[in-house]
Every structure is written in structure tokens, then in C-alpha cells.
């Protein structure tokens, strides 16, 4: 799969770079490609690192508010998993 995708990507990259040379809008040829590729990698790596060292917690971190897998109160009545408001009229 990856091997088949390499030729079109290389072709598009070369075409884009040549276009950059002639148009002269970007600071250097291939500027957009560099931002796209490295920006994306930096965002993912930095965020994942921040998540691991600082931000990620188990789902029951706020014990009263574990995010539910299913939110049945939002389903229409004809849906097989529908449940009306679980706590309606409790107080």
C-alpha cells in the first residue's frame, strides 16, 4: 500500500515545488509541504508526549462523572437501545 502511494506523492511534491519556484509566493520552494508534514508530526508527537507526562488520566478521574460509553437518553424512542431520562422526576 505504502509503496503504491509513493510515486504519486513524489510527483505531486515535485510539481508543487516547481510551481513554487515559478510563482514565488512561498518563502522557499516546498514550504507548504514542509509545514504540512513536519507541522503534523510535531503536533502529534508533542501532544502525545504532553498527554503521557501530564494530561491523561483514567476515565474515572472525576469519580462522579465517568464518560458513559452509551448515552441512551439522546436516542429516539424507536431505537432499540433507547432509554428515557434515567433520573427524570427523581427530585
Amino acid at each position: 500500500m505504502i509503496r503504491r502511494a509513493i510515486p504519486p506523492i513524489v510527483v505531486l511534491f515535485v510539481l508543487g515545488t516547481i510551481a513554487d519556484v515559478f510563482i514565488g509566493y512561498s518563502p522557499f520552494p516546498g514550504y507548504g509541504a514542509a509545514i504540512g508534514l513536519f507541522g503534523c508530526i510535531v503536533i502529534v508527537v508533542v501532544s502525545k508526549w504532553l498527554g503521557t507526562v501530564l494530561l491523561d488520566r483514567p476515565e474515572d478521574y472525576y469519580p462522579d462523572e465517568v464518560p458513559p460509553d452509551l448515552q441512551p437518553d439522546l436516542l429516539p424512542p424507536e431505537h432499540p437501545e433507547h432509554q428515557p431520562h434515567a433520573r427524570r422526576g427523581r427530585r
Binding site: 508543487g16 513554487d20 507548504g32 509541504a33 514542509a34 509545514i35 504540512g36 507541522g39
Partner: peptide
């Protein structure tokens, strides 16, 4: 052209 490059390589 620049925007297309950015989007294409983000997808990559």
C-alpha cells in the same frame, strides 16, 4: 498551491 501542499502533506 501552498495550501494544497500543506493539506496533502498533512494527510500523508
Amino acid at each position: 498551491v501552498e495550501k494544497s501542499q500543506i493539506l496533502l502533506f498533512t494527510a500523508l
